[in-house]
Write a protein that binds this DNA or RNA. Structure first.
Lengths: 216, 216
DNA sequence: TTTTTAGCTGTACAATTGTTCAGTGAACCG
DNA sequence: CGGTTCACTGAACAATTGTACAGCTAAAAA
């Protein structure tokens, strides 16, 4: 199959970037559907409609391809939470609520995407590079949450003797745990319930107005 | 290598069970060290000091071997929490504290073991058999926690409008999330901190006496 | 003892793996 | 236009994969 010869001819540079991205997308799709053990360079190439050696051409090695796919995932995630946490137009409380809701409901928290995260995490403990990536990404993530919590409780550095950083770490742990539950025990925990769990957890440290979208 | 010819000769039946268990242990060791992608029947056989076809002989297929290893893991885990949660000699509060501490500190919560859990979970979403196993195991687990919470708040079916079951699910989500943090961001969350997180979380629903082992 | 049984060996096999690389043809540029 | 560049091809590679199975040997049974 040849490069899609569209009307306004695509430059070679664009074509390369386009193919590269397609390979990354395909990689994530396969992992999502079949898990880490189902990922094969041949499969990626075939599914992308390209030739066998294409992955090595773009990424040299399979390891590199996986790492790059992982980075893509992290970038998407970062973009999502930044858009919410750092949105100055909303009140801190609004942001926190929206943040929780966004992370615990589709499209961010859909089984397909979560499966990829889990698959990568399952590999991460055995590769320092992955751990480094996680550490770096999660650090900024938690700092952003901490910052939001700080805005939520102006002046105070501690709540009930706990630093805001600690509470931020706890919240991320809780969110990750809920994601795991979604995957491992589908249906056990409804998104609404999960949101309530986080709000209840935070409610014991901050005064949050119960926001009911609609009354019964 | 021949079967270890000990002094009191081992029966054929015992030998078979022994070998079978050794293969399962080796499987878990390899997954722990290299992840799911590092698991190979040849490697298992070699590391166990046995011949190539041994895994197929005992488990027919690789899939079966993995499933059986997963079951072993679940059994160990179940044994651990049952010993604590159902220990009638301790007060409910003691049991809850011990339960949390046990699940969040070594030897149960050591990186080696957690890595295996994570590796299996990473595969689970793609095999119904695994999910079924998880669902079954987790159900009993959560029911046991719920029962303990019930003993902790006698008479009440709800707390702050939340069912005890809901709180039990939340607690397991929190514990899983902490386990994930241990692996993905080692050192970020200390066991002491993690224990405090759970206690703080539960503290907003139950009256628990802060148990300080030693004062500074 | 002799015969039977069965746990295990180790070779063999087809399939698949990640990776290499000379070749190709279209985009690029002077 | 004509020469160069380069994204991509696809056959070939050695290595490794899961699995099958005839044969061996020591335990069990007769």
């Amino acid at each position: 199959m040849k490069p899609t010869a569209s009307y306004p001819t695509i430059t070679r540079q664009e074509q390369k970037l386009f193919t590269r991205q397609k390979l990354l997308d395909t990689t994530i799709d396969i992992i999502s559907a079949e898990g880490m053990t189902g990922l094969t360079l041949a499969k990626v190439a075939e599914r992308a409609g390209l030739s066998r050696g294409i992955c090595n051409f773009h990424f040299q090695t399979k390891e590199q391809l996986m790492l790059e796919a992982f980075k893509t995932l992290y970038r998407e995630h970062e973009q999502a939470w930044r858009a919410i946490l750092e949105d100055e137009r909303r009140s801190p409380e609004e942001r926190l609520n929206l943040f929780i809701r966004t992370l615990l409901t589709p499209p961010l928290a859909d089984p397909r995407k979560l499966a990829v995260w889990l698959a990568f995490w399952g590999v991460a403990p055995h590769r320092q590079t992955y751990i480094d990536l996680c550490t770096e990404g999660d650090c900024q993530y938690e700092q952003a949450i901490e910052e939001l919590l700080r805005q939520l409780s102006p002046g105070q550095q501690e709540i009930n003797g706990l630093s805001l950083k600690t509470i931020a770490v706890w919240l991320t742990a809780m969110i990750d745990g809920i994601h795991l539950q979604y995957l491992i025990a589908p249906g056990r925990l409804t998104p609404d319930d999960a949101i309530r769990a986080c709000q209840a957890f935070l409610g014991s440290y901050f005064q949050l107005s119960e926001k009911e979208p609609d009354g019964t």
